[in-house]
Amino acid sequence: MLMGLSGSGKSTLLRCLNRLIEPSDGHILIDGDDIATMDDKELRETRRKKLSMVFQGFALLPHRTVIDNVAFGLEIQGVSKEERYAKAEEAIAKVGLKGYESSKTSQLSGGMQQRVGLARALATDPDVLLMDEAFSALDPLIRSEMQDELLALQDKMKKTIVFVSHDLDEALKLGDRIAIMKDGIIAQIGTAEEILTDPADDYVSEFVAGVDRTKILTAENVMKRPEPVVSINSGLKVALQLMKKHGISSIFVVDPEKTVKGILFIDDAVAAVKDKKTIQDVLVTDILSVKPDVPIKEIIPVMSDSSSPLAVINENNKLIGVIVRGSILGALAITEDDQNDLT
């Protein structure tokens, strides 16, 4: 994901990758071959087989029908009509345009036109997809829909996609790794969390200042280490002592495999000691838990309804972290401070 304001060189960088713009220096390696030093013939082969591109203005050929647009790349490769139509139909189905094969492209809406553009890029089954502001010309609702579909497609295809965007929300939503560009230089490259929580310089932090962090930061980012916990086999006095020592009013109870069994509140524990009960007797098993990749936007309403801490558990039901109200507020407050420092 290449990100930056207009004029920052992101489209230029993208066009260097398939040499629509000649790079003046450096190497572009794909499967170990350097695109930058290829002769015309090798470059043509690479463009045909390994790279394809989706354009901001869709760039469909106006004299061709949908299927002939999608089959364009294969036609250039000299694939027979039957075979290329079969593959084109597959690609058209992938982007959800089945039934529009023989339509004229000018009859389609913007969103549908870009689906054709995407299908055209997918039809040649390239290794790398270059997308130049592919969704920027679409209105917001359609854009978000296309983003979701691209994510769903990518889930199945697992291709390398280089996506240029000036829309930070889009970058954060789609990008596994985001490069923020300024004046032709990459200011920072990293995951969404890395860029939000640890901006490399003032430019990057200013750039990401307006982002809704609750959408980006996940349970994993704000959770504390699950300490202390108490084993289900321990006595109540051990549990009470741990809570007193750490100044907390509740504690998670786990079994030897670190699977959460429940939560123990201090008041219940004190009462239970008097009645000579065990941990199992006063354990609250109905606990709140989330997976580590849930964004905190979804956690906040859960937490505001309950005073108990939230357990973060992985797919094997093991306790990997704890979220208390303070941890979320802290994560958001730090970033607020950063913004105040800038202004």
């Binding site: 629509l20 043509r44 690479t46 591109m53």
Partner: peptide
Amino acid sequence: PVELEEVATAFGTTSIQKLFKVELPVAL
């Protein structure tokens, strides 16, 4: 349009293919 020229190049056309499959039809 420049973008259509880029489409042709990006999909690996020879200059003859570009002329007959993109430029002439668009300019027709």
